[in-house]
Simulated assay, not measured.
Amino acid sequence: MREPFVMVEEKPFLRLLEWESRFPGLVAGFTMRTGGESEQPYGSFNMGLHVGDEAQHVVANRKKLAKQVEMPFASWTCAEQVHGNQVCQVVAAGAGRESLNDVISAADGLFTEQKGVLLTSFYADCVPLFFLDPVSGAIGLAHAGWKGTVHRIAEEMVKSLQLQHQTKPQDLLVAIGPSIGGCCYEVDERIMSQVRTCVRDWESAVTPPQNGRYMLDLRRLNTAILLELDIAMENISSTEWCTSCRTDMFFSHRKEAPIAGTTGRMVSYLGWKDQNQKGEGSAS
């Protein structure tokens, strides 16, 4: 399968090019670590306000991304992210764009059908899930670390889209973005005990153990969950980018934080442009 997340024109983000080409007005992608204002250990395109970076640097980076994807900064919307499986419908743009004080609380998934809302979610190894219903136009982002994955945040998103937008699973498109791969993600029996109960086909995502440790592919585990929800395999696009293998391109909490104590965050973004909005990144 062709890599869905593509670097274009040396910009500091990967575009979900197939979706953007197929659906005019849609912006979708995932940032990389370079090309921003942040100083070490957050160098340099850090998007997370919650990791100890200077807020003005983070906001400058967010404004730069908004400008480059031609969405107003006022459209930027994000949630608290607590490694759970709660998803929230977004009815107005702007939550959390400059401060944690007004972030959408206790949610790891956001969805909307409104234009002029840029959904965003933050990562440094966890799995970004992108959802698009071509029939209703509803879109969603979900943050799936191991906890969110085994508690089936993907299912919570699909159920919410079904309830609020009458989405049919067979119509739904899903993209799985850059994250730590099965090549690098080593887990113990404590995590595996939950992996075994989260989906029937869990074994497809696990390498047999050595010395009591397993290699877990969270992207494959989420794929197994999506297939169990009757989403067609041909409608699921999954990346090959591993954040731990490619710390020249991405932040990796698993690889970097044990050494430096912290690291920055990439952002996944997804939104429909509103032609009535100004597309400049410095709007407030």
Rank of each mutant, 00 (worst) to 15 (best):
residue 4 P to R: 11
residue 10 E to G: 11
residue 11 K to I: 06
residue 14 L to H: 09
residue 17 L to I: 13
residue 21 S to P: 01
residue 30 F to E: 03
residue 33 R to D: 06
residue 37 E to W: 10
residue 37 E to P: 00
residue 40 Q to I: 12
residue 41 P to F: 06
residue 41 P to K: 08
residue 41 P to M: 06
residue 42 Y to A: 05
residue 46 N to C: 09
residue 51 V to Y: 11
residue 52 G to V: 12
residue 52 G to P: 08
residue 54 E to Q: 15
residue 66 A to S: 14
residue 68 Q to S: 10
residue 71 M to K: 04
residue 72 P to Q: 08
residue 73 F to G: 03
residue 74 A to N: 09
residue 81 Q to E: 15
residue 81 Q to K: 08
residue 82 V to P: 05
residue 83 H to C: 05
residue 84 G to M: 10
residue 86 Q to R: 13
residue 86 Q to F: 11
residue 89 Q to V: 10
residue 90 V to S: 04
residue 94 G to P: 07
residue 95 A to I: 07
residue 95 A to S: 15
residue 96 G to S: 06
residue 100 L to I: 15
residue 101 N to L: 14
residue 112 T to Q: 10
residue 118 L to K: 08
residue 119 L to K: 04
residue 132 L to V: 04
residue 134 P to K: 08
residue 138 A to P: 10
residue 140 G to A: 12
residue 143 H to A: 02
residue 145 G to E: 02
residue 148 G to V: 02
residue 149 T to L: 04
residue 153 I to H: 03
residue 153 I to G: 06
residue 154 A to G: 12
residue 160 S to H: 07
residue 160 S to C: 11
residue 161 L to D: 07
residue 161 L to A: 05
residue 168 K to Q: 15
residue 176 I to E: 03
residue 181 G to D: 07
residue 186 E to L: 03
residue 187 V to D: 00
residue 188 D to W: 01
residue 189 E to N: 03
residue 192 M to I: 00
residue 195 V to I: 08
residue 198 C to G: 01
residue 204 S to C: 12
residue 208 P to M: 02
residue 208 P to H: 02
residue 208 P to K: 04
residue 209 P to T: 00
residue 217 D to Q: 01
residue 218 L to S: 03
residue 223 T to N: 04
residue 225 I to L: 14
residue 227 L to I: 02
residue 232 A to Q: 15
residue 236 I to M: 05
residue 239 T to D: 02
residue 240 E to N: 11
residue 240 E to M: 06
residue 240 E to G: 05
residue 241 W to V: 02
residue 241 W to F: 11
residue 246 R to S: 10
residue 249 M to W: 13
residue 257 A to V: 07
residue 257 A to F: 02
residue 263 T to F: 08
residue 264 G to Q: 08
residue 267 V to P: 01
residue 268 S to I: 05
residue 269 Y to C: 03
residue 273 K to E: 05
residue 276 N to W: 11
residue 277 Q to H: 13
residue 277 Q to C: 11
residue 278 K to W: 10
residue 280 E to G: 07
residue 280 E to K: 12
residue 283 A to P: 06
